[in-house]
């Protein structure tokens, strides 16, 4: 039970928490927080697992670096869309009044 494995398991738990937040919360910004938390969880698993056996492994570290940059790009895009959506419709969640019922007229 080395430290990296402990962090990998924490990463798994963070994924669970992030998933719960993403599915449960309706406010768009909170969904974004949950998405970032889940992302950090995945990155922890990605680095923790290989470093459990061998020592420091630069390849997953480079992958996580790229992952973090992609995550912030996605978060930034999401924030821009949320602000514009709020600006145009005054709503901060997707379950607003025109909920697109399955098959109903838009």
């Amino acid at each position: 039970m080395t430290a990296p494995l402990l962090y990998a398991l924490v990463g798994a738990m963070l994924c669970g928490i992030g998933l719960f937040g993403l599915l449960r919360l309706s406010h768009l910004l909170r969904k974004l927080l949950a998405f970032n938390i889940m992302g950090s969880g995945v990155f922890l698993v990605m680095v923790g697992l290989p470093q459990h056996q061998g020592g420091q492994d630069p390849v997953p570290q480079a992958l996580v670096l790229t992952g973090i940059v992609v995550a912030i790009a996605a978060t930034a895009l999401a924030i821009v869309l949320i602000r514009r959506y709020y600006h145009l419709s005054g709503m901060t969640s997707l379950e607003g009044e025109t909920t697109s019922r399955e098959g109903g007229p838009e």
């Binding site: 494995l5 398991l9 798994a12 738990m13 669970g16 719960f20 599915l23 697992l49 056996q53």
Partner: peptide, 21 residues
């Protein structure tokens, strides 16, 4: 229901990590 689903997901994930390690 969502909490149970996420808990199960985390459990399976942790178990899989444990076996892989």
């Amino acid at each position: 229901f969502i909490a149970v689903v996420c808990l199960a997901f985390t459990g399976v994930l942790a178990a899989s990590i444990w076996t892989i390690a």
